[in-house]
C-alpha cells in the first residue's frame, strides 16, 4: 500500500490534479454499503464547509440510523442526537451559539416518523439552521423495515407483501409540509445519482449554508437517495428504481426559495 501511495504522489502533480478529497473529510474508511448515497452527501457537505472556510465554526448534529457515525467522516465538532431529536439538539446549539453554523443530518425514519414534531417545530420557529434530509424510503440500519416515506406496494422487512395503505397509511411527503411553514426560507429536493445531480445538490447545500449566514430562516435540503442493501437490488438497479418509482412521487426541485415570512405582516392588530 505504501508503495502505491508513493507512486500516486509521483503521478499526481498540481498541474494535472483535477480532483482531490476535501480536507474536511477525515481519512476514516466509511462504513456505508457500496452504492449508498450517504457518502456522496457527506462529501458534498465537507466540500461546502471547506469552500466557505467555516470548518472551525460549524457544528453538526448526527441522527440515529446509518448516518449515526457521520461524525467519523466530517472533520468538525459534532453532537450525536437521540432518534428523531436532531432538530431540537441543533436548536439548543444554535440558540447558545447564534454565530456558529449548525446543521442536522437525518434519515427518513429519524426526521419524518419518530422526529416529526421536532422537525416541524424547528422549521416553524424559523431556526437559523440547515437541515439535511436523506430519503431512501426505508430503514437502513435496522435491516430494511418500512419508513414513513416507503412507496405504496414497496416490499420491506415489515411490509413483506408490499406497503398497503389500508394497513400502513400513505408515504409521507414531509418536505411538501415543511414548505408550507412560515419559518422555512429555502426548501428543496435533490438527488445524487449522476454527476449533474451531485453538482445541483452541492449548489443547494451551499445555498442553505449561505441562508444560515444571513439568518433568513430554516434551510431544508431533502436528498432522494438509494439504499440498495435495504432494497435488495444492485446499486445500478437502485438508481433506476429510484428514478422510476420515487421521482414521480417525490419530484425534484425547489419547493420554496426566499426567506421566512415577515412577522410584522402576521401580527394581530391591537
Amino acid at each position: 500500500m505504501a508503495e502505491v501511495a508513493e507512486n500516486i504522489q509521483n503521478i499526481i502533480k498540481p498541474e494535472n490534479l483535477v480532483y482531490q478529497k476535501s480536507p474536511v473529510l477525515t481519512d476514516k474508511v466509511m462504513h456505508y454499503c457500496p452504492g449508498c448515497s450517504h457518502g456522496v452527501v457527506h462529501k458534498i457537505i465537507a466540500e461546502v464547509i471547506d469552500e466557505m472556510g467555516i470548518q472551525e465554526d460549524t457544528i453538526g448534529v448526527s441522527p440515529v440510523g446509518c448516518s449515526v457515525f457521520a461524525y467519523n467522516y466530517i472533520d468538525i465538532d459534532w453532537h450525536e442526537a437521540a432518534h428523531g431529536r436532531a432538530p431540537a439538539v441543533a436548536t439548543g446549539v444554535k440558540r447558545v451559539f447564534p454565530n456558529k453554523f449548525v446543521f442536522s443530518y437525518q434519515g427518513d425514519g429519524d426526521l419524518a416518523a419518530i422526529g416529526t414534531a421536532e422537525t416541524m417545530h424547528a422549521v416553524n420557529r424559523g431556526e437559523n439552521i440547515v437541515m439535511v434530509f436523506i430519503n431512501n424510503a426505508i430503514y437502513g440500519m435496522t435491516g430494511g423495515q418500512m419508513a414513513p416515506t416507503t412507496m405504496v406496494g414497496q416490499v420491506t422487512a415489515t411490509t413483506p407483501y408490499g406497503r398497503d395503505v389500508d394497513l400502513n397509511g400513505y408515504p409521507l411527503k414531509i418536505t411538501e409540509l415543511i414548505a408550507q411553514l412560515p419559518g422555512a426560507a429555502y426548501v428543496t429536493r435533490q438527488s445524487v445519482q449522476t454527476a449533474a445531480a451531485v453538482k445541483k445538490t452541492k449548489k443547494a447545500i451551499r445555498k442553505a449554508f449561505e441562508i444560515q449566514a444571513n439568518k433568513k430562516g430554516t434551510a431544508f435540503v431533502e436528498v432522494v437517495a438509494t439504499c440498495n442493501s435495504g432494497w435488495k437490488i444492485s446499486p445500478v438497479d437502485s438508481n433506476e428504481w429510484m428514478e422510476e418509482h420515487m421521482f414521480p412521487f417525490y419530484p425534484l426541485g425547489d419547493l420554496k426559495d426566499g426567506e421566512k415570512e415577515d412577522p410584522e405582516a402576521l401580527k394581530m392588530n391591537v
Binding site: 457544528i59 448534529v61 453532537h79 442526537a81 437521540a82 431529536r85 431540537a88 439538539v89 441543533a90 436548536t91 439548543g92 446549539v93 444554535k94 440558540r95 447558545v96 451559539f97 414534531a117 421536532e118 417545530h121
Partner: peptide, 20 residues
C-alpha cells in the same frame, strides 16, 4: 429562554446547549 414544543424537545435542546 425558549418554550419548546414538548418536554422531549426541551431536554434535547438542553443536550445540544450543554454539549456546547
Amino acid at each position: 429562554v425558549l418554550q419548546a414544543e414538548s418536554e422531549v424537545a426541551s431536554i434535547n435542546m438542553v443536550y445540544g446547549a450543554a454539549g456546547a
